[in-house]
Structure formats: structure tokens, C-alpha cells
Amino acid sequence: MSRKDVAGLREQVEKLERRTRRRATPPVAVPISTFAPRPFEPRRPIGVVIGPCRGGFTASFLDANLSTSGETEAEALDNLKDLLLMAYEDFEQSDDSALGPAMLKQKSVLFDVIQRKP
């Protein structure tokens, strides 16, 4: 086996080790306690789950069945905050009669945990 072959095998092993370490990272629960500087606030800490995924991380608010991703945990969390507020604002404008059961539940959950600042 040549040095070039050994170097190629070493590189493949290192790639596999990096992937394994990334996948071995367990999901973590993180509370959202602010939407600053936006004019919204949580009524109570909002529990979300952040975990690794291909090429980055996902952040999920399971109660409302909403999820986003980002290259870092912080980016995934920021993207989820944006998604929660966009959904909240859309629901403020929506007519409940046009929403199905799943969307009504999602609206109810979001209105239960988020409010506009007074």
C-alpha cells in the first residue's frame, strides 16, 4: 500500500469520525424567553428542541408542529423564532372558518404562548 493510499484512507476515517461525532450529539431542550427586539413576548418560556441534522441543526416547537433549520444551533433557533412570529402574524389576519383542524390547533397553541407587547 502506498503512502497516497494510506493518506486517502486516513482522510476517509477522519470524515466518518466527524460525521459520527455530529450525529452522536443529542438533541437539547432550550427555552425561548424573548423575541427582542421584535414587539412580541412569550407568555411563558417556550420549550423548543434543537438537534443535529445533515449540515447543521434543526429547531422545533413540537406543540405547534413547527420546525426550521440552520447551519448553527443559534441560527436554527433564530430561524424558529422568526417562523413562530410569522405564523402568529398570519393567524392574526386569518379567518378561523378558513382554517382546518390542524391549523386551528396551531393557532391556539401560538396564541397561548405568544403575545404582542403592550
Results as ranks from 00 to 15, higher is better:
6 V>A: 14
7 A>P: 02
7 A>R: 10
8 G>T: 12
8 G>V: 06
9 L>H: 03
9 L>M: 12
10 R>A: 15
10 R>T: 08
11 E>D: 11
12 Q>S: 11
12 Q>W: 02
13 V>I: 15
14 E>Q: 14
16 L>G: 08
16 L>N: 05
17 E>H: 02
17 E>M: 09
18 R>E: 14
18 R>V: 03
18 R>W: 01
20 T>P: 00
22 R>P: 00
22 R>F: 07
22 R>C: 00
26 P>C: 00
26 P>K: 15
27 P>M: 06
30 V>A: 05
31 P>C: 04
31 P>V: 07
33 S>R: 10
33 S>N: 08
34 T>P: 09
37 P>S: 14
37 P>D: 10
40 F>Q: 08
40 F>H: 13
41 E>Q: 11
41 E>F: 01
42 P>I: 03
43 R>D: 01
43 R>Q: 09
44 R>Q: 08
46 I>D: 01
46 I>T: 10
47 G>Q: 10
49 V>I: 10
49 V>H: 04
50 I>A: 04
56 G>I: 05
56 G>V: 02
58 T>H: 12
58 T>M: 04
58 T>P: 00
63 D>F: 00
64 A>H: 07
65 N>R: 15
66 L>I: 00
66 L>H: 05
67 S>W: 02
67 S>K: 12
68 T>H: 03
68 T>L: 14
69 S>V: 01
72 T>I: 01
72 T>W: 12
72 T>K: 10
73 E>G: 08
75 E>P: 03
75 E>K: 12
77 L>F: 09
79 N>P: 04
79 N>K: 06
79 N>S: 12
79 N>G: 09
81 K>L: 11
82 D>G: 07
82 D>T: 07
83 L>K: 09
84 L>N: 03
86 M>I: 02
87 A>F: 04
87 A>C: 11
88 Y>E: 07
88 Y>K: 06
89 E>Y: 08
90 D>V: 07
91 F>W: 10
91 F>Q: 05
92 E>D: 12
95 D>W: 03
95 D>Y: 02
97 S>G: 06
99 L>F: 10
99 L>N: 07
99 L>M: 13
99 L>R: 11
100 G>E: 11
100 G>W: 07
101 P>A: 15
101 P>Q: 07
101 P>T: 05
102 A>P: 06
102 A>S: 12
104 L>V: 10
105 K>S: 13
106 Q>P: 15
107 K>H: 03
107 K>M: 15
108 S>F: 13
108 S>W: 09
109 V>H: 00
109 V>S: 00
110 L>K: 06
110 L>F: 06
112 D>Y: 06
112 D>E: 12
113 V>I: 15
114 I>G: 01
116 R>E: 11
116 R>I: 06
117 K>L: 15
117 K>C: 15
118 P>F: 07
118 P>S: 14
